[in-house]
Nucleic acid binder design. Structure first.
Length: 577
RNA sequence: GCGCCCGUAGCUCAGCUGGAUAGAGUGCCACCCUCCGAAGGUGGAAGUCGCACGUUCGAAUCGUGUCGGGCGCGCCA
């Protein structure tokens, strides 16, 4: 066993916060270096042991390769506390490093204002290959979530039309967040909230009725805010075929129910094509039928956060940070959507989800503060930040260098299904995920369709397929590579790749903490680039069997990491392309 | 007017808990095909990190202000 493992036992208590791969017993390089230096700092300056808060060593990865594999800046941080010059402190820390730690290639250098630059021994670098082989699909996972129940709510489209590209981005982000948090040990539930009550649904029914009358040749005016997409005509046709007794759509409840069911079915098919599955569908209508609206209002009134004005009932959300108070019950006696929204989020908490993530289009961000304020006003002990929100910005779709105009009112918008049919599920998901969710996204259809390395998805998948192809040519049994002599991995390409694949668990941990799926896409793109560079620079199938096996053992590990990463994104890892 | 997001290379975008000479892809320029895939490879030029002030040993990163763009601001959802 490598000494890094022993270090972990010594210092895990101090560094539990940075132990990223708890499942494995494998300690990532950064944490191993941190543990080594933490001990050295305390040995060099024993008084720091008793400080509160205790000094924690930070380890960073320098951009400049001349600065080593990792850099420790503790000497700079301790300047003030110790009243010494940073370079002196650095000298003391380095002098206190445990010899024979097995982790470092050489005595660390002190550079610049007082950075300590460290290089890993090649032996330490190669340990990750064993860890990846042992863990397989589990490599990268962690238990930090402690099986805590967590809900990710996403898509939550009104059943008033097919899913469009914006819903697609939400679906990709929400589903990946769910996969990501699952990988970190949370007990994740995916939920879709259906706004199947209220004015929009009536509007939908009215639109269908209008089309029914139209096809029957009965004069009528189309609702001003009606839905004009062709799918309304299709629903009218279906309705007419199944309900010949009501060709004019006069049975409003029946028309409404039919239209909602038809659109839900369509949306389900869209999501299935996107490989997104929900554990639960929560119907807004059930909030009314279960009496939760009245209950919520009664609670808010009892808590003294409401007042009547102009015949309406208001919630004083300004008490909780909102910029204006909000109407709960309109003067006509009906409720605004705001009340069921609060009631819905209360159910999340009461159903045991100590953490909830709500994924929404950024155009709904106005409702965030209101809901959070409403939850606080309920006085149920819900944590102040509840729930977490992840918002995604708008998408611009480009084809042939031109923007494809999206207009829901005109009924001419790019549906999610269109996109999946045209560019494929993998590319659609990856493109939605490769940018930070709160920046706007340009979706280049031509690029997404192209089968070349210019295409970011193709580039990553190709790295995976390429490894499969090399192994296929080799023709041996991959399990036999566990005996490979990894000390044969001497080139800088190999060092770079080894350290990159070792970063995978930490990348997942950060992406989960930041709720940022794009970090995974960036990471995979980086690994793929390094793999392609390696492939172009070196050969794998050589007369030298020892070197061949060592290199194959490395790329098998790379393949596993790419596969595990793509799985989190919901993108396939093809063996050939 | 108020709130949220964004402003980094010609273009599309990264930049982790503040760190050393700010990165990638694409485009541009120059070289390179006896090769497990030339639909490729190697190298190069290219940025006042919108602007100003502040905090700090150190700011693209944190704070304030300001300019520009997007979105939201209804007793609609």
């Amino acid at each position: 066993m490598h000494l890094a493992y022993a270090l972990r036992v010594d210092h895990l208590a101090i560094h539990s916060a940075m132990s990223h791969s708890a499942i494995s017993g494998y300690l990532d390089n950064r944490s191993a270096v941190a543990a080594l230096f933490q001990a050295a700092v305390f040995d060099a300056f024993p008084a720091l042991r008793d400080d509160s808060p205790q000094f924690v060593v930070a380890v960073e990865q320098p951009k400049n390769p001349d600065h080593g594999h990792f850099a420790v800046n503790s000497a700079l941080h301790l300047t003030k506390r110790l009243g010494k010059k940073p370079r002196e402190i650095a000298e003391s820390i380095v002098a206190a490093l445990k010899a024979d730690n097995g982790l470092l290639a050489s005595r660390p250098e002190i550079a610049g204002p007082g950075f300590i630059n460290v290089r890993l021994s090649r032996h330490a670098e190669t340990q990750v290959i064993h860890a990846i082989r042992a863990l397989g699909d589990e490599f990268g996972k962690s238990h930090v979530g402690n099986d805590a129940p967590l809900m990710v709510e996403f898509v939550s489209a009104n059943p008033t039309g097919p899913l469009h590209v914006g819903h697609g981005r939400g679906a990709a982000i929400g589903d990946t967040l769910a996969r990501l948090l699952d990988s970190q040990g949370y007990k994740v539930t995916r939920e879709f909230y259906y706004n199947d009550a209220g004015a929009q649904i009536n509007n939908l029914a009215a639109s269908v009725t209008a089309r029914l009358k139209e096809r029957a040749g009965v004069a009528c005016e189309f609702p001003e805010d009606g839905y004009r997409g062709d799918y309304i005509r299709e629903i009218a046709e279906l309705y007419a075929a199944q309900h010949p007794e009501d060709l004019l759509g006069n049975q409003t409840d029946q028309v409404r129910g039919f239209a909602v069911a038809a659109l839900r079915h369509e949306q389900d098919l869209d999501l299935k094509a996107f490989d997104v599955q929900f554990d639960n569908y929560y119907l807004e209508s059930s909030i009314y039928t279960d009496g939760l609206v009245e209950k919520t209002v009664a609670q808010l009134v009892a808590n003294g956060h409401t007042y009547e004005e102009g015949g309406a009932l208001w919630l004083r959300t300004t008490t909780f940070g909102d910029d204006k108070d909000r109407v709960m019950r309109k003067s006509d006696g009906t409720y605004t959507y705001f009340v069921p929204d609060i009631a819905y989020h209360v159910t999340k908490f009461q159903r045991g989800f100590g953490r909830a993530i709500t994924e929404l289009g950024a155009d709904h961000h106005g409702s965030l503060m209101r809901v959070k304020a409403g939850l606080q006003a309920m006085g149920l002990g819900i944590p102040p930040g509840y729930p977490d929100y992840v918002l995604h910005q708008m998408i611009t779709v480009m084809r042939g260098g031109e923007e494809v105009k999206i207009s829901k009112r005109a009924g001419s918008y790019v549906t999610l299904r269109d996109l999946i049919d045209e560019v494929g599920r993998d590319a659609t998901r990856y493109f939605f995920l490769m940018r930070k969710s709160d920046s706007q996204l340009t979706f280049d259809i031509d690029l997404a369709k192209s089968r070349s390395e210019d295409n970011p998805v193709y580039y990553v998948q190709y790295a995976h397929a390429r490894i499969c192809r090399v192994l296929e040519q080799w023709g041996g049994d991959v399990t036999s590579l566990s005996d490979a002599d990894l000390s044969r991995l001497e080139s800088s390409y190999e060092s770079t790749l080894l350290r990159s694949i070792a970063d995978f668990p930490e990348t997942l941990a950060i992406a989960a903490r930041e709720l940022s799926p794009h970090l995974i896409a960036n990471y995979l793109s980086d690994i793929a680039a390094k793999m392609h560079t390696y492939y172009n620079a070196e050969r794998f199938l050589l007369d030298d069997v020892g070197l061949t096996h060592a290199r194959l053992a490395l790329i098998v590990a790379v393949r596993q990491v790419i596969r595990n990463g793509l799985r989190v994104l919901g993108v396939s890892a093809p063996e050939r392309m």
